[in-house]
Design a protein around this nucleic acid. Sequence first.
DNA 1: AGATAGTGTCGAAGCGCTTCGACGGGGAAG
DNA 2: CTTCCCCGTCGAAGCGCTTCGACACTATCT
Lengths: 334, 334
Amino acid sequence: MVKITDVARHAGVSPSTVSYALSGKRPISEETRQRIEDSIRELGYRPHAGARALASSRSNVLALVVPLRAGIHVPVVMQFAVSVVTTARRHDHDVLLLTQEEGEDGLRRVADTALVDALIVMDVQLHDRRLPLLRALDRPSVLIGFPAEPDGLTCIDLDFQAAGEVCVEHLAGLGHRVIALVGSPPEVYVRETGFAQRVVRGFTAAADRHGLSSSVHPCEAEPAAARQVAEQLLRERPALTGVVVHNEPIVEPLIDAFEQLGLRVPGDLSVTAICPDELAGRVPVPVTSVAIPSDEVGAGAVELLMKKLGGAAAPEATLLPPRLTVRESTGRRP
Amino acid sequence: MVKITDVARHAGVSPSTVSYALSGKRPISEETRQRIEDSIRELGYRPHAGARALASSRSNVLALVVPLRAGIHVPVVMQFAVSVVTTARRHDHDVLLLTQEEGEDGLRRVADTALVDALIVMDVQLHDRRLPLLRALDRPSVLIGFPAEPDGLTCIDLDFQAAGEVCVEHLAGLGHRVIALVGSPPEVYVRETGFAQRVVRGFTAAADRHGLSSSVHPCEAEPAAARQVAEQLLRERPALTGVVVHNEPIVEPLIDAFEQLGLRVPGDLSVTAICPDELAGRVPVPVTSVAIPSDEVGAGAVELLMKKLGGAAAPEATLLPPRLTVRESTGRRP
DNA sequence: AGATAGTGTCGAAGCGCTTCGACGGGGAAG
DNA sequence: CTTCCCCGTCGAAGCGCTTCGACACTATCT
């Protein structure tokens, strides 16, 4: 293994000079720097991560805690993780993967052993058990999602409430008067995952504001459940002409179900969804939707952490504004 | 921060004794060990990962390289990653997440900086560019999937060839004489990803062996493409009664398409798939399938690495035997 | 009884890097 | 012509842990 002293000798300088040339923490003459860089390339030098971490008390590793529970759309998680890794690399950091399963102990472990410099926690619940720990930890963290009390924490997510509102406003603008929200599985609401409830709040508030008749329907992430909800809606709310779906796996099955029940989309019924663009675009009837910007959330989370690691203050709440893309599933009220 | 010298002082022993008590690399009297453990608990001691890595030249971290390309079923990747993390933790290791995107440089970087002790590489292609590097690296690695020349490498995967065979044998046993394989998207074959071609090989060999008439049809992972293939099959091979699907996203759409074209499953047509059990079980007609055992592959990969890290030899090839689960989509030839 | 072999513990020497204080030399300011 | 300061570099002191050799003891064998 080639080490910093080898490089120093080869370049005719002291080890500390090599270190400073690499970190830029002290000025080094252009000429010396060049010589050092040549030596590094020639010898194939790579600083030892452990030694670096020990001496600098920075590991340049971020922890990412991913959820693995029911009701969470896996591709979104994956996309998010990839975006975190990519952004972290751009800041010369790596990403350690933790599962929810490890729980609080896992967080404490990687923080206390100085394995990681900072943490990103996904799937935060309204009353998440990890919050006190994250507040107490001596390393910065960023949460994806909003707990009930975000004080002292840094959170980022799509503004789901605004997303719900935007969908309703789009429908209201097209003249619809009777609308419904087909939401996530009941357990998602029961365990109080903030984002699902925020959608409901936005949906309801906007509907009330516009004087629309609205209703909310949780739904399992199964085609069969989607069909049941569709039947129930036709039965109980025959005047319905607008639907907002917040449940990735059933966007397509639900539309199918409506069509099989004789409703044309968007002819008889307008449908909008809150889901990844990629999903919205590649179904038989491309769906007007508010995107879930996993990329931006992931990148944003890393940027926030970098800011905190740099000693700067980060805003407590970062809400990404919803962006509605009009596709073919919505039209004027028939 | 509490360090090993603090623990030593508190327990009235020397730091090295604490270290040996922790690692078990030298015998420590029961009494002393107890005293040390008490001190550790009382002080809340956690060894510093970097210091440990530096002194022992072991980071206790594994690298996991995940693919992010088209034609790869995301939930399988995720499930696999979770299984790797879980198993690694059981061996007191953590997992660093790398994306394919980083390529060979990424592998070299984490290996050369001693950030990780070993590597797991997913989505290996027949002529993968990373193979020479993996062979040359001074740390052990395990590949998920089989390249054309596995010499000197350690590989693990489902035995896809046998999986193809098992499906055919199941159909042959039910009396079917004309069968088809609906496969992965064309680009998967073009870029020579081993597993897809192995399925074809197993499928074809078994069909020939049983004197069946067989054909192979690559298919994009889109419902529309599935429908096209279904129509084409009805047109060109009207005597068809058995189908093997190796393409997760279209298992359900393909069956739908057949049924909409007037074929009952399994009444007129038997369908088997090679896909995760979870998918096979939760479609309208539960599908007879060979499972993709992500859990076992992930766990197996980690176990192999641990063996290699322990200095033991690991087999070059580990092929997990296919397991066929009979569900409702297959029956005797009409 | 003396030699032999374990046991259980300690001290010291690193592992490879960063960082702090120091210092020589040149230019600007007085 | 001093004095002061900044630039570029060096040496040395750690960062917190593991590990090697040594050593004192007890147990076992002749």
